[in-house]
Amino acid sequence: MTDALKLTELSKSFPVGKPLFGKPKAIVRAVRPVSLRVETGETLGIVGESGCGKSTLARMLVGLLPASTGSIEIEGEAQDTTDPAAFGRRIQYVFQDPISSLNPRKTIRQIIEAPLKLLHGMGRAERDTRLREILAAVNLREDFLTRYPHEFSGGQAQRIGIARALAANARILILDEPVSALDVSVQAQVLNLLADLKAELGLTYLFISHDLAVVEAVSDRVAVLYFGAVVEIGRAGDIFRQPRHPYTRLLADSAPVVGRPLRPPEGRETELPDPLNPPPGCSFAARCPYATDLCRTTEPPLTPMGETQLAACHHPITR
């Protein structure tokens, strides 16, 4: 069985304060070298807080951002181009803000038709048939086609965004916080729709979110990102129950859960390190209750812990 998606040492750095000519003042490493595989038909969840590089990673995977180093293999084929259209037939993107991801001056038909026309060169009749199929798949009425985005609620707009991604006929969808702009009652509708589509069409998902509970509910495996690097990866059912990396545990303990009393989380009251001046060694060391001198000097590699779990930690939690 081939992997749907395979990233090898993929990374992204941004220059800061670049003058017209010459060298930039500093380099920010938004994503440190990441290697990941996503199996066909799998949902890989990616969690992390703001600034952890999850959206940058996602945008590299669809060719919207050129990677600084590393390679991407999609369905067994290396992607050596940065042309989003070449990616578009294989991998598509569903955006966080459903309203902002739809051009306010185009009808829904124009929006969903674009990939049919441009990526697959379909004729008019063929397009009409396909449009109907896609709308039915996302539970939208056909008379929506002639309307404009501002006439829709967030949940409906997000379905339209999903329909556009389906129209490209890609087998892999990157879902970048697809429900975080929606209210909980609507969020569940969209999550269930995504689950149905996946089962029907055999899709592969990369599901990015800051909400641990949502990620756990939809994913097979979960990768935890911190400061641009994967710190832990493992099966969705295990990773938050038995975290190995102290950051994963901090995340799991911080999530407000009904029935769990409020207690100050273990982490010290500090926040992310300065990206312009990253610490040597483990980037979590400053917040970590178990940090030693080793952590502050040497960056820990991602190493297997248990059967399916990997964590990047010198002093993993064993329990």
Partner: peptide, 13 residues
């Protein structure tokens, strides 16, 4: 805006 990214993924130059 995100719809411009979406257009690029839809194959627009």
């Amino acid at each position: 805006r995100e719809f411009v990214d979406a257009a690029r993924l839809a194959g627009m130059g």
